[in-house]
Design a protein around this nucleic acid. Structure first.
Lengths: 218, 218
DNA sequence: GTCTATATAACGATAGAC
DNA sequence: GTCTATCGTTATATAGAC
């Protein structure tokens, strides 16, 4: 026995990370004070430094947790038989998270911090690549199943799927009245048009294409 | 005559803004000190506050300038006859800027700041909407010219074009070896596949690239 | 208008009792 | 392990000479 009850220690660490994530999302890394984190977590300023050596370590801890969740999502997607549906499932799950204003703010904050902190950048890069690599496998499966244009490079496609999920981030911040469901619907349509195989001859059965959006005036 | 030489005053203001933009991009808003800005601009700490009331005003000034440049870009694009080419021109110009690491860092920084500063958010929102509205007009023109699927809503398309330009931002930060030309090429292909009109009956002359008209086959 | 010098405030991290 | 109290540092913005 090194110290008392490692499970409790870990639970409290988690609680601090959760409280801190909210603070960082709302006020940003620099403007969040350690005192605020402690208040949100229900501890005193001295205690924080029992669990983390400094403020930055708290911030980094949040994104270590995030990597685990991504891995779990990809594992779940691997269980879906239809590779096309698996891709859409991953995209939808990640998007739904990022379309929440608080999550979007945190992502923007970590992106800004990554450009100045090499260690943090490596961590986030690892998370990002895990998602991209997982999607690459799913894309390959979908290409083999004839669901995606074989002329597209799987890795490039996966990179752009990740980018597409990030695409509405600034709009989430600037346009608070954004409708997440509508955004997700358009994104799915965009992805479908981007990826679908091209048939050399046969026209579509019903002669139409559109499932979303309106006929534009004029 | 209120004070001496307003032109020189304006020129110095610009010089300070340029110097400050580099500082903010590299270190972020909070970690950039006013002393650093003054050093980069070649003035002393007292002088800065002759031109701007406080640090935040310097930051805001940068993005007021940016709005003017967007307006100029849209005006230039309006002169291009082919509406499809006009759209690609705008997308390419804005993308090329954002694919530069320093510019990308500044954009991420302002996005993060917008989520906490309503005034700044309104300013950036105005710039964003100007770009989106300008693109909406170009899209409408391209629809009328038969270059874009008429089943797509012009405003929605324009919003997503703006989002697509922002999409690779985090990758620019995380993957320093990114090739801007390759990124732009894929983006153009993605946009073309997203927007191109569906041919209900006749296959194209070369027998390739006909849409199936379904989101997910099967 | 531009400079040097500084007032004032705030924050991260630590010390040390319990 | 958790608390209170506080130290040392750093930065914005101002004051006032020139």
């Amino acid at each position: 026995m090194r110290t008392v009850d490692p499970a409790k220690h870990e639970a409290k660490r988690r609680a601090i990370l959760d409280a801190a994530a909210g603070c960082f999302a709302m006020k940003g890394f620099e403007k969040t004070t350690t005192a605020e984190i402690c208040r949100a977590a229900g501890i005193s300023t001295g205690s924080l430094f029992h669990y983390f050596p400094n403020k930055r370590a708290v911030f980094v801890g949040i994104f270590e947790q995030d990597g685990d969740e991504t891995a779990a999502l990809l594992a779940a997607a691997g269980e879906i038989e239809d590779p096309w549906e698996a891709i859409l499932h991953v995209v939808a799950q990640v998007s739904e998270q990022l379309l929440q204003p608080l999550a979007a703010k945190l992502v923007l904050e970590v992106a800004a911090q990554c450009s100045r902190d090499a260690d943090l950048a490596r961590l986030v890069q690892g998370n990002d690549r895990a998602l991209r690599d997982g999607l690459t496998d799913l894309v390959k499966g979908a290409v083999e199943a004839g669901r995606i244009d074989p002329g597209l490079d799987s890795k490039t496609v996966a990179s752009w799927l990740v980018a597409l999920v990030d695409a509405p981030l600034s709009r989430v911040i600037l346009e608070p009245d954004l409708d997440p469901k509508a955004e997700l619907a358009v994104m799915k349509e965009l992805i479908a048009r981007f990826l679908r195989p091209v048939l050399p001859i046969s026209p579509p059965a019903d002669g139409r294409l559109v499932d979303t959006g309106e006929i534009s005036p004029g």
